[in-house]
Structures are given as C-alpha cells and as structure tokens.
Amino acid sequence: MKINIKRGEVLCYEIQAKNQTLLEVLNEIKTTQDSSLAYSSGCRSGVCGSCAMRVNGREILACSYHVQDGDLVEPLNNAPVIRDLVVDMDKAYGFNAKAKAYLSADIDNILITHEEQKINELQSDCILCGSCYSACPVYAVNSEFLGPFALTRVWRYVSDKREQNPKEKIDNIQTNGVWDCTLCNACTLVCPQGISSKADIEKLRARSALVGYMDPNFASFGFSGGFDGSPIF
C-alpha cells in the first residue's frame, strides 16, 4: 500500500502494512527506508499526547489510527512546523499559564464527593495532544485566543472544590477567551479523549454570566443574535 507524507512537499512511501497503526508504519519507514523522517512519539498507547498529526485533513493520534491505502499524513495545523510532522507546541502550551489553569493556592483536607469529583473527571483526562488547537477555526485567525484545551483546563480548576478563588480565573478569560469561541464544535470532534472544550466553554460562559459578565456580542448588538451563542453577524 502507499501512504503520502507531507514533509514540506508530499512524499509517497510504499509500505507492507496489514492492520498496522500509523505510528508503527512511521517507525518502519524511519528504521528501514528513510531515517530522515521526523515525528514524535512516546507511550505508544494514547496517553502521552506526542504523536498527534493529521490524516486526510483530520487530527488523529498516530498510535491509535490504522493506516489505509492512499492516506495523506500532515503535521498539525496552527502551530509552526519544525520539521516534517513535528510542530512547535511551546506557544500553545503557554496558554495554560496565560489562562491561569492551575489551583491558585494549596489547600488541605477538603472532602470531595463522587459527584463533585465527576464534575471535572473528563476534563482532567486531557493529554495535551494539541489536536483541538489544530482544528479550531478561531485560533487559526486569532493567535491570542486562549483556545480549547487551556479553557477546558480552566474549567477543570474553576469547578474544583479546592479552588478558593474561581472569580479571579473567570475574570482572566473574558478577553480572547470564552466569548471569542464560535461554539463550532470542531474541537470536540477531534479530541481523542472524548472531551468537549466547546461544552466546557459554555459552562465557563454560564459562570461568567453568574458573576456579571455579558457576551460582548450581545452587549453591543442587543438581543438580536441566536441564543445558542452562534455569531450574530
């Protein structure tokens, strides 16, 4: 079978693959055909988030995707390509700090019920693979948008019973944050962990409203937009 890999230009490789993951195929190419091919990998089992890339335009983890004849493999979008399938994640990861995605102070001995724990169980499954940033149309045009995984992480802490200053976190995500998202759901569709940053952003909007923030789009245009929050112009 043949697969095409975008390395600056698209190169075609002939491989013997039977029910193999893309990562296995990349390893095969690298160790037997062309050792100059650059990509990242780690755990091989979908938890370290190293091998996110795109196949036929869609974000996947190479270790969890079975190759098909004719596949086109490309690096993630919306991040500088360092080489071949490797992108620079420094800027994207930097949004976690900008969004203050951490507990604001240590806190001892808080009891947490099953229900309270469930509130952010899924969100804390995030592996920071970056697929959601690659798929996000808003991040593509606004490079200062805090972006899906950072906002999911904010929800993860804001909703944590141990967080003593959630208001500060909400204050911090009003600009280039929750209101800039178009709720297009692209991030949800590509997340290998089944996380919906879109849904988390909606929850953060509700929290924002509770402390008095308003959708700036509504504020300037009155209530003429759709109440699902979709763009109104």
Binding site: Y102, L103, D106, I107, D108, N109, I110, L111, I112, T113, H114, E116, Q117, N120, E121, S124, R156, Y157, D160, R162, E163
Partner: peptide, 16 residues
C-alpha cells in the same frame, strides 16, 4: 496530602 492539596483529581470513596 500534598498531591491532594495542589489539586490532583484522585478518585473518591463513599466517605468523600
């Protein structure tokens, strides 16, 4: 206790 205090989302039992 320290991991709990910095926010590790440990699973909980019926006594929270």
């Amino acid at each position: 206790r320290w991991l709990d205090s910095i926010g590790v989302p440990f699973s909980r039992n019926d006594k929270s």
